[in-house]
């Protein structure tokens, strides 16, 4: 599955982002998911309202990286996490 252009990711029930003193993790029913800094920054913008495109645009303003590259990274992360059942993706309302 590939995230569509206006896909809006959100955490499924029982999944939470948790900031620890030295890192950010995802709490899932099966345990803990360690995130690297880029994954943590991306998931910190997942609020059930922002689309993947909007998340990439926001990250592009924080990092000196073209939005098109970030969009590919965001899509890949969302796809991988949704494949594991930790994120769900809905379509933006027209």
């Amino acid at each position: 599955m590939s995230s569509s252009r206006d896909a809006i990711p959100s955490f499924v029930d029982g999944v939470r982002l948790r900031r620890l003193p030295d890192r950010t993790v995802l709490l899932v029913p099966e345990g803990v998911v360690n995130l690297n800094a880029s994954a943590a920054a991306t998931l910190g913008l997942v609020d059930g309202a922002r689309s993947c495109s909007a998340i990439a645009q926001e990250l592009s303003s924080r990092y000196d990286v073209p939005a098109v590259q970030l969009r590919a990274d965001v899509d890949e992360l969302v796809d991988r996490l949704s494949d594991r059942g930790w994120l769900c993706v809905s379509k933006a309302k027209p």
Partner: peptide
Amino acid sequence: AWERPDFEHV
């Protein structure tokens, strides 16, 4: 710096 987002399930 930005790097490819990655994760590890524990």
